[in-house]
Amino acid sequence: MACSEPDCVSTAGELVKLGFYSYPKDSARKFRINSLELKGSDSLLVEESTNLSSVNLPLDPSDTSITAYFDTEFGTDTVQIGYDVVSRIITENCGVEILFTNVRTLQNTFDSIRVVNSNVLINFKEPGVINENIRIYN
């Protein structure tokens, strides 16, 4: 992948954002995560963090799903997130981008979960802010 030229604009994001919400009020809530680990990874993604209202999970271009193991103040939960990997040439001079589309939940043990945005794209309106893809209710 290469996007060094000024005219090369990639829309592809690589993080899927999970937001935590209270049920049934549908309002964002903060809680404590003891650990968050992704299957196939040697390191913890989150460790002993409080007041988190969302987490960003890196998607694996070489696979079509990731599985996250949560240990929170509410107990342990697992969610498997599926997605499609689409390769696209931006331009001949700009190289290739990897798009993650059709984000969906394949398995989960949370009380309730909902996909609110199935495409992982860069947020051009608010640079640095990642679009929320999935809402988890507890």
Binding site: M1, P58, D60, P61, S62, V85, S87, V96, I98
Partner: peptide
């Protein structure tokens, strides 16, 4: 066919 880099997962080729 192309190579990619990934900060979390390992680099690879598609």
């Amino acid at each position: 066919v192309f190579d990619y880099t990934n900060d979390y997962w390992s680099d690879g080729a598609i």
